[in-house]
Structures are given as C-alpha cells and as structure tokens.
C-alpha cells in the first residue's frame, strides 16, 4: 500500500506502530519461551525449585502490561482521529470548506459499484475525481453488504442496505487507483472490483459534461426508439 491521501498517511503510520507493538509481543513471548526451555531442560540430579509467593512481581508485570495497553490505546485514538479529519481541499479544488465537500454517491450492488455525481450523471466500475480535492463518498447498498476498499486512498467501509456510511479522501496525485470489494457478497464477489481515476479539475469537469451528454443522448435515443415503435 502506498498512501495517496492525508487519511491514509495517518493510517500508514498507525499500521507501522501496530506492527511494532505486535512485534514486541511476539518477540518477548517467544524469546522468553526459548530461553526458559534452554535453561530448564531436565538434567541428571536437577530438582525443581519450590514455588515462592510473588505477589509484588505479579503486580509489577500487571502494571507494565496495563501501561503498554493504555499507550497503544491512546496512540490509536490519536491517529484514528487524525485520519478521520476531513482533508483540506487544495487551491485547485472544486469544493471549499464553506460550500461543503464534493459529495458522490457510491452504491454497491451484486457485483458492481455505481457512482452518482452531483450533476446527475453516473458511472459504473470507475470513479473519476479531481486531484487535491476532498471527496466524500456516501456508501449505499441495494442488496447485500459490500465493502468499499481502495487501500491507497482510504480505509475500508461497509455499504449496508438501509444505512449510509461514508468515506472521505483527497487524492494527492493523478493516476488510477485499484480497489476491490472486501465482503463476501455472493458468486461473483472476487470479480467485484473498482478503480478511482484521479484527474485534473478541468478534466473532471470535462468528464462530467461528456458523461452527462452521453447519458442524455443515449436516453433520448431510447425514448425516440420507443416513440417510433421500434422497441416494445
């Protein structure tokens, strides 16, 4: 994973901290285990030492563990809260903090993602967004639980039918970011992929216009066909 959004930057740091915490646990336990085995293997004439009460040692170990857990908790809350803050919209961005974030509706359905843009146009599979602009995705589902996951731009979020979930990100570089749905949703789940194409604001505007025009043209054509009686 290569973070390309302020939120994923924070998550990336937290992942590193989490990895270190996990490594501390694993190394401490396993080193102590191997050392205990090496030191105490049965030898001729060896007698087990009697067990002495050790209340204070228990208390000390308990305190160390509590402090460790508390530190991990506080650090996690700090970085998670930073990751949740809406990224600031850049100078070229379309939405300022005043007018709210650029909001796009992402609807999961077996087995496709549909994106609805503010101007009424929509696209399937591929989401097009402007660079350096805070984007808020409203996640919805029309059937089962789907999980929207484009690791470089944001953490995962579930689209649960009947509920609205949201993802906020701001891509810092133009390009295409691949993603995949991450909750078992039926037969074609593994093929339920998505991609976010990050383009310049001008290209984004052009894309929206073009998409809108294409959709309208297609719709007009269908309506025309129906009116002409060519399609029942």
């Amino acid at each position: 994973m290569a973070p390309h959004s302020p939120g994923t930057d924070q998550i990336d740091t937290l992942l590193l901290i989490g990895f270190l915490a996990a490594a501390i646990v694993v190394v401490a336990v396993n080193v102590a285990l191997v050392a205990a085995v090496r030191r105490n293997r049965a030898r001729r004439g060896a007698e087990p030492r009697p067990v002495a009460p050790d209340r204070r040692r228990q208390l000390r170990v308990g305190t160390v563990l509590t402090v460790f857990a508390a530190v991990v908790f506080v650090v996690s809350v700090v970085f998670t809260d930073r990751a949740r803050e809406a990224p600031v919209t850049g100078p070229a961005g379309l939405a300022s903090e005043k007018s709210g974030l650029l909001t796009i509706k992402a609807t999961g359905q077996q087995w496709l993602w549909r994106y609805d843009y503010p101007n009424g146009s929509f696209s399937y599979y591929k989401l097009v967004v402007p660079v350096d602009t805070a984007v808020k995705l409203e996640l919805l589902s029309t059937d089962v639980v789907h999980t929207w996951d484009v690791p470089d731009l944001s953490g995962k979020r579930d689209a649960v039918p009947g509920k609205t979930n949201k993802v906020v990100f701001s891509a810092d570089e133009e390009g295409v970011y691949e993603g995949q749905s991450a909750s078992l949703s039926g037969q074609a789940y593994a093929a339920m992929r998505t991609a976010v194409e990050v383009v310049s604001p001008e290209a984004y505007e052009a894309f929206l216009k073009q998409q809108k025009a294409d959709i309208d043209a297609a719709q007009d054509r269908v309506v025309g066909l129906i009116e002409n009686g060519e399609v029942p």
Binding site: G18, N30, V72, T80, A83, K156
Partner: peptide, 28 residues
C-alpha cells in the same frame, strides 16, 4: 509450547487489528 508460540503470533497480530485506524486497512 508450540501452542503458546502460535497463539502469541496470532494475538500479536490481533492487537494490530484492534487498533481502529489500522483495522480499516487490515480488516477483511
């Protein structure tokens, strides 16, 4: 002893999975 070692690896990783921000990337 193998059980303790294996569980330590599993629970060490679960520690990272319980950190909310990290879980958003690691879950599923």
């Amino acid at each position: 002893l193998g059980a303790i070692s294996s569980i330590s690896i599993g629970l060490g990783a679960e520690l990272e999975h319980s950190m909310v921000g990290a879980a958003w990337e690691l879950k599923n």
